[in-house]
């Protein structure tokens, strides 16, 4: 049980897919313009990670080395298509904004990476925990980045139609934070911050 908890936890900080392993950055930088998009993208990617980890771990005894990659991709692509269809049916307005990034979860390095590096070698329980942990770590970074970029770039945070925080009319939001440079700036500062915190912790 301790092991499972450890697997879950390591995905959030110690092995955070975005800030530590630095994989799957492309979609993260693109959709982190708003907190709300981060929530949906995070849930979608976490669901795919969790489900594909479980299935790949469950069939690992029958998966020969030579054909593991096509099998991984088939499993992952199936779950992504399921997410794609469900989001299109039930969350259409968000789906339209996230658009191409949902089908592109297929090629997100985090998912294939965890299938190859973890789920293929570990038990179903541990793979499920790893998937959840990695998904949580990914979602967390999306939320933090979305919060910083939405608040500084538009002056307020709107979640499900409700204005949560507003900086007031006196604040002239620099739109650069919503555009691509803002994504790189925010991400760079977050990584620096995590490095500082970790090196302090060690010494």
């Amino acid at each position: 049980m301790n092991q499972v908890w450890h697997d879950f936890k390591s995905g959030i900080i110690a092995e955070n897919p975005l800030l530590r392993l630095m994989i799957g950055l492309c979609s993260a930088l693109a959709v982190s313009t708003r907190v709300e998009y981060g929530i949906f993208m995070g849930i979608a990617a976490s669901f795919v990670l969790f489900s594909s980890n479980i299935i790949i771990s469950a069939i690992r005894r029958w998966t020969a080395d030579q054909i593991r990659i096509p099998i991984f991709i088939t499993v992952i692509a199936s779950f992504v298509t399921i997410v794609d269809l469900v989001m299109r049916a039930y969350f259409y307005p968000v789906y339209k904004v996230l658009g191409v990034w949902i089908p592109l979860i297929v090629v997100n390095c985090i998912i294939l990476g965890r299938a190859e590096a973890f789920a293929y070698k570990h038990s179903i329980m541990r793979s499920a925990a790893d998937g959840l942990g990695m998904g949580a770590g990914y979602t967390l970074v999306l939320l933090v980045m979305g919060f910083i970029r939405e608040l500084s770039g538009t002056g307020k945070i709107i979640l499900f139609g409700q204005t949560l925080v507003s900086l007031g009319a006196g604040f002239e939001p620099p739109s650069i934070m919503i555009l691509f440079p803002g994504a790189f700036l925010t991400f760079g500062f977050l990584m620096a911050l995590l490095n500082i915190v970790q090196s302090r912790g060690r010494s």
């Binding site: 069939i59 029958w62 998966t63 020969a64 030579q66 054909i67 096509p70 099998i71 088939t74 499993v75």
Partner: peptide
């Protein structure tokens, strides 16, 4: 054998 495994998955 590999072909059949792949086919089953698909």
């Amino acid at each position: 054998r590999l072909g059949i495994t792949l086919m089953m998955v698909c």
